[in-house]
Design a protein around this nucleic acid. Structure first.
Lengths: 252, 252
DNA sequence: CATAAACGTTCGGAAATGTCGAACAGAGTA
DNA sequence: TACTCTGTTCGACATTTCCGAACGTTTATG
């Protein structure tokens, strides 16, 4: 289920460099030995990779260990730019959070996973939501299921071949037939519900965001503890916001 | 003034991979041929690098060209985490923007450059400021000069050896003696002024943010068009905020 | 305080792999 | 139809990366 780098015609050295980056990103701070151990490579090899990243200014030495540098912040902003271009997306997320008084988020599909792009808690204006940038299996979140339901069948097949249906809680859908039934219901209703399928005790309501051409652009959702999330009441709000985004595309 | 990659014991392949990433980040969208041309490498080589990045999910194909993927957004968040840890930094920036009614920003020193980490316009709550993540020569901005003034002399020497004193406008300080004099004045007053040294017609007032140990942690500044930026009046505000951050460190 | 352990660093050699150029296929254009 | 522009694949050479061992330094430990 995981590509073995060099197997696919890729560059194994570049591949390893990316692994080093991931090691540094998945924890805060690592030394040469730690990187070497985690990737099962020689210390001298890890050292060479770290030196490459350091000389280029991509990583930083702090408290004696290496950390990802702010150059990645710049790359992250560049990666997000296509969405920032359409400023109404983020605005709609904040609007949604204000009106629903719970968290609202916009996720984009990428490489068959869902990625948090915008997130808001409403008036609280919580600074820097830590979940932005996080990738999550599409079948385990409301916005993701809403997107999945719009994909053609063969794309869903390919997605499951690549990633499977990993469980995140006891409630996560792990069975293909069950998923198909769920997607069918979502298409009928126009919105998706997540009942603790990603985090215990978190309910969410999501809808797909489509372009005027009918392509899947992303997914919107609101989420919170079950007693604050009334699916019936919120569905219209979320679908309405998704539709408004779709309409905005035409006048941009 | 630019390191020539392989010269320093780094891995030339990994180095090239980073160059490919930078090409994609510095413009929106590039094809195989375009990347190859810009880096002056064979098309097949560029193809191999792009494939490596693609297989790993770091880049995306959209409209027939490659773009940076949202995985960089995740890495960017991870890189920013050390600052998010101290939530009062971002809060102070927003406070500063509210009180001054102009832009406020926090910059961190990294690899001898200044990097925008937080930025706020006050109540407008402008979504996604595009300048976050941007790197800029320290001597050309107020917060950067404020930090420079706190560095020991040999660190300033090393910095200038590496980056020089590039001009961004006609007003940018490009002479070492002039810089030294400016830094001395900054130390005396406790704050720095930027008079169109980075952007024509933009004035800024900045102060260094120190840790309780006296280390330079970053720089705060407010900026706007000259008639809205009164240095005398704003200096206390900025220095006060910088000092409050320093104090917060002790109770965290 | 001395010793040990752990870390980061450097170095050469053998093996693996990245790079190139040419050739192929496909899309778009004249 | 022919042309030009893409992106892609392939093989062969030469360059590189990688490893392991050894070194110098720092941090723990007795």
């Amino acid at each position: 289920m995981r590509e073995d780098a060099a197997t696919g015609g890729g560059l194994s050295t570049g591949d390893r460099l990316l692994s080093v980056i991931e090691v540094l990103g998945s924890q805060d701070g690592a030394g040469v030995t730690e990187v070497a151990d985690q990737l099962e490579i020689a210390k001298s090899t890890a050292h060479a990779h770290l030196r490459t990243l350091y000389d280029r200014g991509y990583i930083v030495k702090r408290d004696g260990t290496y950390h990802l540098g702010l150059r990645f912040l710049q790359l992250g902003q560049a990666a997000k730019q296509p969405w920032d271009e359409y400023s109404f997306i983020e605005e709609k997320v904040e609007e949604l959070a204000d009106e629903s008084e719970i968290r609202a988020q916009f996720l984009a599909p990428e490489h068959d996973e869902a990625v948090y792009v915008y997130r808001s808690t409403g008036r609280h204006s919580v600074p820097t939501d830590s979940r932005v940038g996080v990738r999550i299996p599409m079948h385990s979140v409301a916005a993701g299921k809403a997107m999945l339901a719009q994909f053609p069948g063969d794309r869903v097949d390919a997605l499951i071949d690549r990633h499977g249906l990993p469980a995140r809680t006891d409630e996560t859908i792990t069975d293909r037939a069950e998923l198909d039934a769920a997607l069918e219901r979502i298409r009928e209703r126009g919105y998706a519900i997540n009942e603790g399928e990603s985090w215990e005790g978190v309910r969410a309501v999501g809808a797909p965001v489509l372009t005027p051409d009918g392509d899947v652009f992303g997914g919107l959702s609101v989420s919170g503890s079950p007693h604050r999330v009334d699916p019936e009441g919120l569905a219209d709000l979320v679908m309405g916001a998704a539709n408004e985004i779709k309409l905005e595309f035409q006048y941009e």
